[in-house]
Structure formats: structure tokens, C-alpha cells
């Protein structure tokens, strides 16, 4: 990987849902301040993989995980690490916008409050800052105390991004963030991701190959739990090494 600084590293990761072998010996590096896209057909394990990076999958009962995942030099799977600590440093935006049934301000301040920040002024500053960074400030600045559920889908998703940014994570994980959005909202989210990579390390799961091509620097192609190919996005889309990758990106299956 061109000797770029690595922010997260999966090393020999296997994952099981009960007996089902969902991820097989995955080795993948996520470069700092770059966008890494994970593509592949439904059920290939791409969402499962990204949810390992902030330890969300351990809330699913009856699963087994082996291998190592590092955040910088920290082994995040080590039993002495608090998963909440990992999640503070590795934020996540989900497939469907999932704002809390609270007002817009509270949606952002919640993350700060649960992490022990009590200073009102600091909270207020962070809320404004995160809303601005997520390119939604102009749309909501006059109605911060309205229910977040009154926002449109695209606005809700940007609010969810703002909610992540407020607790100042280092890595942002996006799990098909545009799957339920219209093309205009999708474009806004994509522009935002490109803007955010200056300050954050980003991994995005997407079904949309054009999206991966547009916004990512590196792309990994998953198929049936295997990481088939992982390379620079340009390379994956112009001259894939593996014929299965080529078949998928040219639309022959998936």
C-alpha cells in the first residue's frame, strides 16, 4: 500500500454466525485519511466486516471472532479493551438514517453527554461545529429544537454523520449510507465524505460501484466471505487482477 500510514488493520480475521463461516481469513489495511470502499454482492460479508471494526457485531448473540484487529497499535479485540472506548474512536453511520426520537440539538449532544461531557458551552460549540462540518447547519440552524424525525431522509443521514463527528472519532465507518436516499441526497453525502477524509479515516460499504469509484482511494472486493481483491480503486476498476472482480464490476453478476 505505497507505505501510507495505516489507521486500522485486520489480520487473519475469521467470523462465524453460529456454524456459518461469514468471513474467511481477512487481511485488510485501512489507510489514514483515505477512503476505503468495500464492495461485493449481498451476503458477501462486507457489512459484517465493517461492523467488526467498531465491535458492533458482539451485540449479535452466538457469534465467534478470531484474528486481530488493530486501531493504530491498539489491539481492539483484547479482552481488557472496553468496546465503548473503541466505538468512541471509531464512529459509525448506518444504512438507514436512525436519528434518535429527540430534537436536533439533543441528537448531537447525546453522544457528548454519555461520554461524560457536562460543560454546557462546550456541548453547544460542539453541536454547532459538527452540524457545520456535516453540511446541514444552514438547513437546521433555525429549528434546533424541532424533532429530528421531521427532517427528510437525506437530512437525517447528515444529522447522523454530525452525531458521529461530535464525539471526535478518528475513524468513520459508513454502512451503505446512501442505500435509502435519492440521487441528490446521495451526492451531498458523497461530497461530504470527500470533505471529511481530510480529517478522518473513512471506510464505506457500498452496493453502488460508481459510488465506490467516485469517492474511494482503495477498494476491497468481497465474495462469499472471502476478500478476493484489495487494491487502489483505480486499479480495481480499470485492471482488476482477479476475473471474479472483473465480472462483478462489469455487472456480470451481483
Amino acid at each position: 500500500m505505497d507505505n501510507l500510514p495505516i489507521k486500522m488493520r485486520a489480520h487473519g480475521v475469521d467470523f462465524f454466525y453460529g456454524q456459518h463461516h461469514a468471513l474467511k481469513n481477512i487481511n485488510l489495511d485501512i489507510a489514514k485519511n483515505h477512503v476505503t470502499a468495500i464492495i461485493g454482492p449481498s451476503g458477501c460479508g462486507k457489512s459484517t466486516f465493517i461492523r467488526l471494526l467498531n465491535r458492533m457485531n458482539e451485540m449479535v448473540p452466538n457469534t465467534t471472532l478470531t484474528g486481530k484487529i488493530y486501531l493504530d497499535c491498539l489491539d481492539i479485540l483484547s479482552p481488557c479493551i472496553d468496546p465503548a472506548e473503541v466505538r468512541r474512536r471509531v464512529g459509525m453511520v448506518f444504512q438507514k438514517p436512525n436519528p434518535f426520537p429527540k430534537n436536533i440539538f439533543e441528537n448531537i449532544s447525546y453522544g457528548l453527554e454519555v461520554n461524560g461531557i457536562k460543560n454546557k458551552q462546550l456541548i453547544e460549540d460542539r453541536v454547532v461545529e459538527s452540524l457545520k462540518k456535516s453540511a446541514i447547519w444552514d438547513e437546521v440552524k433555525d429549528r434546533l429544537h424541532d424533532s429530528a424525525l421531521r427532517l427528510s431522509g437525506g437530512q437525517q443521514q447528515r444529522l447522523c454523520i454530525a452525531r458521529c463527528l461530535a464525539i471526535q472519532p478518528e475513524v468513520l465507518l459508513f454502512d451503505e449510507p446512501c442505500a435509502s436516499l435519492d440521487p441528490i441526497s446521495t451526492r451531498k453525502i458523497e461530497e461530504l465524505i470527500l470533505e471529511l477524509k481530510k480529517d478522518y479515516t473513512i471506510a464505506i460499504v457500498t452496493h453502488n460501484m460508481q459510488q465506490a469509484a467516485r469517492i474511494s482511494d482503495y477498494t476491497g472486493f468481497f465474495l462469499l466471505g472471502d476478500l478476493i481483491e484489495f487494491d487502489k480503486t483505480e486499479k480495481i476498476f480499470k485492471a482488476p487482477h482477479d476475473s471474479r472482480t472483473e465480472d462483478y464490476i462489469t455487472g456480470r453478476f451481483g
Partner: peptide, 15 residues
């Protein structure tokens, strides 16, 4: 209450 908002909360480092 949808599972998704519980996930969102846990993903922010809430217990």
C-alpha cells in the same frame, strides 16, 4: 422501539 436507534446509541460509546 427499533433496534436501529439502540445500535446508534451503542455506536456512540454509550453503555
Amino acid at each position: 422501539i427499533p433496534h436501529s436507534i439502540r445500535e446508534a446509541s451503542m455506536a456512540l460509546g454509550a453503555t
